[in-house]
Amino acid sequence: MKMQILIVEDEAVLGMYVSDLLEASGYQVVDVVDNGREALSIFQQQHVDLLLCDIHIRGDWDGIETVNKIAEIREVPVIYLTAFADRETVERAKQTYPSAYLSKPVRSDNLKLAVELALSNFARHKSVGISLSEQKTVDKEAGKESILLADDHVFIKNNYQFVRIPLADILMLQADNTYTHIITPYQKLTLRQTMSGTQEKLGFASLVRVHRSFVVNLKKITGFNDREIFIGDTVVPLGAQYKDGFMSFFTSR
């Protein structure tokens, strides 16, 4: 599932240019709007994973006030886009805890870096509670995050960008030597991490280890017997040493 970005920029040519760059990088642009009130309306109607907002925009709200209004609904990583700003504006912007800044003129490489930095900083800020609701970051190594949690979904770094996956959509994890495959109904993402480490970092209680090579989402199981677990048409082995732990999640009446 592509990460969805809302752009707030009153220079129409620049807004479309940034939109094209993002979509060429594999992201989905929800909309490009030129004022805060329209941005708020779009945010209320559609899912937005990241907000890219110019500080100086049209309308009675500037970018900073727009971000404040949006944060009252739900906090998301914010990238401020600006050519220049006076000290007072910078101080106001800092009070909204932006995840990254992007200076004009915008270049493709700087834009990609800003998006990645914004997601990383947003998760890290949430983990220490800086003006944000309690949140867990699942990888503490600065600059090396490959898994970032945000509410009920997770961002997985894949081919130099982060892909959003709702935690509830994960079917299973599969170990492959030093790699782990995260399998959903619509894609398979591969991380260079151990399966146990990936399971711990995801922190999703429904994920249960059932074999040395498999972790399954209990809520996706369609059936099981003494040796196998069924998730739709997929058959997963049930290891003897994991059977008691697996069965402990069920109660009989």
Score class of each variant (00 low, 15 high):
residue 26 G to I: 06
residue 157 K to L: 11
residue 9 E to L: 11
residue 97 Y to T: 07
residue 115 V to D: 13
residue 172 M to V: 01
residue 138 V to F: 14
residue 224 F to P: 01
residue 219 K to H: 14
residue 59 G to K: 03
residue 164 R to C: 13
residue 128 V to E: 13
residue 90 V to N: 01
residue 145 E to W: 03
residue 58 R to T: 10
residue 118 A to V: 12
residue 13 V to L: 14
residue 176 D to S: 14
residue 175 A to T: 05
residue 23 E to S: 04
residue 172 M to F: 14
residue 188 K to H: 03
residue 158 N to D: 15
residue 118 A to H: 10
residue 214 F to T: 06
residue 240 A to H: 02
residue 137 T to P: 00
residue 213 S to N: 14
residue 121 N to T: 12
residue 11 E to L: 06
residue 70 I to L: 13
residue 178 T to D: 11
residue 175 A to H: 02
residue 155 F to V: 05
residue 151 D to H: 10
residue 237 P to E: 10
residue 151 D to C: 03
residue 174 Q to H: 04
residue 199 Q to H: 04
residue 189 L to A: 12
residue 234 T to K: 08
residue 9 E to T: 07
residue 131 S to C: 10
residue 102 L to K: 12
residue 40 L to N: 06
residue 146 S to G: 09
residue 228 E to D: 14
residue 12 A to H: 09
residue 58 R to P: 00
residue 102 L to V: 09
residue 134 E to W: 07
residue 44 Q to V: 04
residue 18 V to I: 15
residue 18 V to D: 03
residue 172 M to T: 02
residue 23 E to D: 05
residue 193 Q to H: 09
residue 125 H to Y: 15
residue 133 S to A: 15
residue 127 S to H: 13
residue 25 S to P: 00
residue 152 D to M: 05
residue 66 T to E: 00
residue 70 I to V: 06
residue 182 I to C: 02
residue 176 D to Q: 12
residue 133 S to R: 13
residue 75 E to V: 05
residue 197 G to E: 11
residue 251 T to D: 10
residue 140 K to I: 12
residue 243 K to A: 12
residue 247 M to W: 03
residue 88 E to Y: 05
residue 236 V to Y: 01
residue 92 R to N: 13
residue 45 Q to P: 01
residue 227 R to T: 14
residue 76 V to K: 07
residue 240 A to V: 09
residue 251 T to F: 08
residue 6 L to R: 05
residue 52 L to T: 04
residue 219 K to M: 13
residue 217 N to T: 10
residue 195 M to E: 03
residue 193 Q to W: 01
residue 86 D to Q: 12
residue 136 K to G: 12
residue 131 S to P: 00
residue 55 I to W: 05
residue 219 K to A: 13
residue 87 R to W: 02
residue 181 H to V: 01
residue 106 V to W: 08
residue 21 L to K: 07
residue 142 A to H: 06
residue 161 Q to E: 08
residue 89 T to V: 08
residue 56 H to L: 08
residue 108 S to T: 13
residue 29 V to F: 02
residue 22 L to D: 08
residue 130 I to M: 15
residue 162 F to Q: 06
residue 224 F to S: 07
residue 96 T to Y: 03
residue 29 V to H: 03
residue 54 D to W: 03
residue 155 F to P: 00
residue 135 Q to W: 07
residue 13 V to A: 15
residue 43 F to E: 09
residue 242 Y to E: 02
residue 168 A to K: 10
residue 238 L to D: 04
residue 82 T to F: 10
residue 185 P to Y: 06
residue 206 S to A: 15
residue 199 Q to Y: 01
residue 192 R to E: 03
residue 183 I to F: 00
residue 155 F to D: 03
residue 72 E to H: 07
residue 99 S to K: 08
residue 142 A to C: 01
residue 42 I to L: 12
residue 210 V to S: 09
residue 247 M to T: 04
residue 148 L to A: 08
